[in-house]
Simulated assay, not measured.
Amino acid sequence: MKQLINQALKTALLIIKLVIPFYLLADILIYLGILQKISFIFEPITSIMGLSPEVSLSIAAGVLFNLYAAIAFAAPLGLTPYEWTILGLFLGIAHALPVENTIMKKLSMPHWYSTLLRIGVGIIAVIILRTLPIHIEGKTLQKEMTLPHYDSFWDMITTSLYNASVLAIKIIILITIIIFIMHFIRTKLFKNKNLSASFSIITGIILGITYGAGVLIAEKDKLTKKELLYVGTFLMIAHSLIEDPLLFVLFGANFWVLVGIRLVLAVIFSYLVVKFYKL
């Protein structure tokens, strides 16, 4: 039990170190208007995706920070359901790269691999969608979503710190519960058989990279490097397949397209990575 508690505490400390600083950084850059000035970097991607350059700001916010910031920038643009599906498909795979790639680094996956994989597969997913004979209909739902407004820099810092702390606490509680549940299943029901890989995939598919990787981080010593690479690759492509797609469904995106293409690509690329692992 003592070892189990130590694992939970180490994972909790890691979550605090990763979530709170990047959450604060995101709010500071948005408050200072710096984010708007770097969105041009992503305009080549919007061209490949068949979207207008104005969407680059949304992509920049999503890739660097989170889906909520991305949607806040995209909502006023009057995108069609098809365009929302394209945006949701790409950002569903490639979002919050600084934070989530740092988490994957703890699983021995370098930043360059995580970045190239997620952006590359995201673009491939969009290309596949644009070539498929799928007609996406539906009226765009109007949902007001704007960036937070603060009266002062200090107000922004205190509010951001509070929100980041609440988020970190929620993640820590959930991951701790998962760690204890895994321990019970492994020791009582399956007599210490290794369930880390499959359990982390299920957790990641439902809850996201942070949760799925959190399970892996706590149990990484029980997995081989090949298993970590397979699960990590799968999770980076297919994670949070309920909450994230539904954010875009609010604006008319096709839920089954968002989930189906990501699952298929996750299986394909994970298989290829394992097949050519020695190379």
Rank of each mutant, 00 (worst) to 15 (best):
I5T: 13
L13F: 02
L14F: 15
I15Y: 10
K17P: 07
Y23G: 13
I34H: 05
Q36F: 04
T46H: 11
G50V: 08
E54W: 03
V55H: 04
V55K: 04
A61I: 02
L67Y: 00
L67M: 07
A72C: 04
F73K: 14
F73M: 15
G78V: 01
T80K: 08
I86F: 03
G88R: 02
L89G: 03
H95E: 02
H95L: 08
V99W: 05
N101W: 03
T102G: 14
T102A: 15
H111P: 05
H111Q: 06
S114P: 01
L117P: 12
R118N: 12
H135R: 09
H135L: 07
I136R: 00
K139H: 08
T140S: 05
H149E: 12
H149S: 11
H149Y: 09
F153S: 08
W154I: 15
D155M: 06
S160R: 02
A164K: 10
A164T: 09
A164E: 07
L167H: 05
I173H: 04
F180L: 12
I181Q: 09
N194D: 15
S196N: 06
T203Y: 01
G212S: 12
A213L: 09
L216V: 06
A238H: 11
H239K: 07
F255Y: 07
I261A: 00
L263H: 03
F269G: 01
S270N: 10
V273Y: 15
K275I: 02
K278D: 14
